[in-house]
Design a protein around this nucleic acid. Structure first.
Lengths: 301, 301
DNA sequence: GATCGCTCATACATTTTCTTATAGCAATTC
DNA sequence: GAATTGCTATAAGAAAATGTATGAGCGATC
């Protein structure tokens, strides 16, 4: 069985899994339906495992196929990383290539755009990709070249730089407080509308949870998206956690329990040791550090 | 350029990089020299990057090729993991498939073999692979399905179980102490032959370094291999660090400064969340936990 | 200094793989 | 209930990839 040598078969596998039919997969990949069909047959024969149940409506993945998915995705991600790495070049003054930056939703949405805009102007040869999510393993999965993270990167093989602390606080829209009043003690929060996460309890939140009586039950408005939480906060849906700098920029937001609730997240920049010497990576790493430090400095005032 | 769709080209790339010539790569892959040559041409054209400088003696990788290597290896590892995952099956009573276990050199050499031998008998349908190294990112790289680690696994997506503490101590062979005497204070170590690491300062050693005045300069016999260190210790080359349980099993070894130097490493078992429910993974995870706990219990006496 | 052993490059034959075209099946729509 | 639209499966010709055979360069060895 292990005489399976054609890595490309997994492209077709992924396409079928995602599109749900041979025909749709053919359209996605630019191949044809019989070809994709033979690829799946070949894969099933090679692995000795039924991957899909054929039907006139399409192909339904088996449990086995689902268990292979993460590995096939890992191959796809690694291939994309390889293609990016091949574009890297140029010298210190004029770096060229495509660089993928991972960041949390909030950083990527509210903080990074102006920083990246400046870098874009300075380095016209660099094409930027931005991967927004709250997982901390992007670099190790090679799903990004540089990561902006709110926790200390601890994995082997990474080079990390600590940029500083980002202060967070509880805020609410003035209109909300006019109606429901300003909590005076932490316990009062239980009687308020608190905006929080739904199920996705990622690490930044875990940090916050350590210093606050935060649990899922407390929240009367739940979204997993941090950005949606901030939008809800600004719209006056309730009391929520937000970076102090962002809150100050919105004059309608009023601090809640500022003396009792003070949370700081560490801000880190990380890169693979393998890649840190490529000109575009180095340029962006330094540029991001500079831009983010300036932002944190301005925010501190 | 980005119309590069054939993932299999990277198999040839890896083979050429490793063997150093098209012909040797052809022998390794079962293809022929012209085919491998065409693959490399196609890859270079697709990536827009010179990968090798051709010579009558073989192909010399460029810097660019070297920078792509880790990504190509990541694809290869993911593919191997996919093939392993495809073998997993059976039920709780009779799990089937190939499982790759990562462990430190010392654990894999001295501790795991009897544990695995017992599991082998109990689960005849499971084929075992053992990956011995001291990196802690095997699981995330999918270079292993289960990891036995001496530090707490902290990455996202892993399920870990703490097994307990493994005590280490300084020991020396009786013959060594007869000749050089028994150190009475920690400072005396500077005048002794201490066996230690060369350059590979991995995390278990870092833990130890925190509680001991250990630095590279102290060592008069340096090897990166932990196993070689233990063998050197047993051969009487000097004073070295070893698990107390292993030292006790060798009656010629005498504890050195047992009251002053007491180090304990945590022992952890970890598995990918994706895979934890597959019958063979679960069987080995539980079996390893059981076997290692029994070993730690026996060692404690 | 000729030979052997290794290498890569090229031209041509062969095999494999892909596409095109068509048939058949189930569900939905008019 | 016939027509339409989605799908898979199969067969045959076109295209692409692979293999075979051969030439030529470099270095070690006798």
């Amino acid at each position: 069985m292990s005489d399976l040598t054609d890595w490309t078969l997994l492209r077709s596998f992924l396409a079928v899994l995602r599109r749900g039919s041979l025909s749709a997969a053919a359209r996605e990949t630019g191949l044809t339906q019989p070809t994709i069909g033979r690829h799946i047959d070949e894969l099933e024969a090679g692995l000795g495992l039924a991957l899909f149940t054929r039907s006139p409506g399409g192909l339904l993945p088996t449990q086995g196929a689902r268990s292979l998915l993460p590995h096939a995705e890992a191959m796809e991600i690694a291939f994309a990383a390889l293609k990016r790495a091949a574009t890297l070049g140029g010298d210190e003054g004029n770096p060229r290539g495509t660089v993928r930056i991972a960041a949390s939703e909030v950083m990527g949405t509210f903080v990074l755009p102006p920083v990246l805009a400046a870098l874009r102007g300075r380095y016209p040869g660099i094409t930027l990709e931005l991967a927004l999510n709250n997982r901390t393993d992007d670099l190790l999965r090679r799903d990004a070249d540089i990561a902006v993270r709110m926790t200390r990167p601890k994995q082997d093989g990474l080079v990390a730089r600590r940029l500083g602390m980002v202060p967070l606080g509880l805020y609410a829209h003035r209109a909300y407080l006019d109606r429901y009043g300003l909590p005076e003690r932490v316990d009062d929060l239980a009687r308020h509308h608190v905006i929080g996460f739904d199920r996705d309890d990622h690490s930044a939140r875990a940090v916050a949870a350590g210093t606050l009586p935060i649990s899922r039950d407390l929240f009367s408005f739940r979204v997993d998206s941090d950005v949606a939480q901030i939008m809800a906060l600004r719209a006056g849906l309730g009391i929520g956690m937000i970076q102090k700098a962002m809150a100050k920029a919105d004059t309608a937001l009023v601090p809640v329990l500022p003396d009792r609730v003070a949370i700081e997240l560490e801000c880190w920049l990380a890169v693979h040791e393998d890649q840190k010497d490529a000109a575009p990576i180095r340029a962006l790493f330094d540029g991001l550090a500079e831009g983010l430090l300036r932002w944190m400095d301005a925010a501190g005032r």
